[in-house]
Design a protein around this nucleic acid. Sequence first.
DNA 1: CTGAAGAACGAACGGTCGTGCTTTTTCTTT
DNA 2: AAAGAAAAAGCACGACCGTTCGTTCTTCAG
Lengths: 223, 223
Amino acid sequence: MEAEVAEENQDGRRVRGDRTKRAILAKAVDLASVDGLEGLSIGGLASELGVSKSGLFAHFGSKLELQLETVQAASELFEEQVWQPVADAEPGVVQLVALMESWLRYFRDPGNSGGCFFSNAYHEFDARPGPVRDAIAAQKRRWMAAIVHHAQVAADRGQLKAGTDPEQLAFELDAVGSLANSLWQLEGDEKAFGRAQTAIRTRLHAGATASGRRALAGAGLSC
Amino acid sequence: MEAEVAEENQDGRRVRGDRTKRAILAKAVDLASVDGLEGLSIGGLASELGVSKSGLFAHFGSKLELQLETVQAASELFEEQVWQPVADAEPGVVQLVALMESWLRYFRDPGNSGGCFFSNAYHEFDARPGPVRDAIAAQKRRWMAAIVHHAQVAADRGQLKAGTDPEQLAFELDAVGSLANSLWQLEGDEKAFGRAQTAIRTRLHAGATASGRRALAGAGLSC
DNA sequence: CTGAAGAACGAACGGTCGTGCTTTTTCTTT
DNA sequence: AAAGAAAAAGCACGACCGTTCGTTCTTCAG
């Protein structure tokens, strides 16, 4: 193998193929959150974008690669829409509850009308070993770890009662959020978000110390 | 149109085609809980059963019909495996928690190695309007309504604190159970069941009156 | 024993899938 | 403006999809 020159130029500007790829992946995430990653077809994606099937295919080389890059793209979108908005919140319970509510907002975003990409992907691939499942499982681990992390920070700051298990807390918070997304998608049930919010706040309030409750109240997040 | 004679004989014995159909649907539920209801292919199902594609197809007439009957078959299996085992439990909180734990057992049943059929189906069809989605959504409503019902009975018997919202309680219980199934499928994480059980018991304990707690303790279900 | 009806079959249809090729268009660089 | 590279398109392939058709085997009533 000989050394290859870098194929991207040094400034921020992207070459044409890269821009196209971005557009493809954005649409791919959109379609896959409706029809699933397996139901996502190369021909369908191409015609949806008004390009040729073969031209699109050349960007990836295989459907598996397309799926993997779609997962990656979805995870970047998730980061943008869920994580970034609460990056500056006060660490601890306040940031934890802010993250949860950012997550709930992401669910109802009209731009994600097919529902949370990952909620669909988790269930689609949970019984199908392979690289796609691995990528998706890794993403789920990252998400859970983030919640646990925020809970741990809250505990370290004395905002949660001694003996609180951050992983148990994360489990329960993730559970109610996930179900809210499901019910919203399946039934268009707006109330599900209210129930999730109630559950999150009640749970945090029950597990919080006086200082933790003060922090929540200060951020306008009492129950 | 002329009147037709009934095509089934009067005693319990079934005609040949009916027995075959049962076998087909059992396998269909099994395959669909891995590959999804859309990924379920008629040819694949036939070869898995060692029968011809056209012979199998004749039983249904269309893939849509196969999907609908598969949903129906899955819901009968669910009833058998989840509801029936707790049918004789003491109504109220005891039956409620028994139902939840029966549900958790159903998740880990080696016979359902592809995970809960419905958990997969909910997410697969939640953004695809049509008869299949309607059938699946109806099933979810039935399930939720059952939990709400048990919670209501518990409330009526004075086992839950006044002001307890049965629907909110049902939401939270369903949430943790669903997530346990997801994590079990995605990561093979046994601990998820422990977390779900902890969450269920803690939640019920917190919402129960003294009489409710006594009932739970009497059934060996304290936390 | 005969004959009709139901159940299962094999072959084939049009269509779409993912995937390779070759050619043409479009951009970038000199 | 010309040359070279990158991107997109065109076309074709084998496999599989749901579906239809005509035929064979099984079952059971008359």
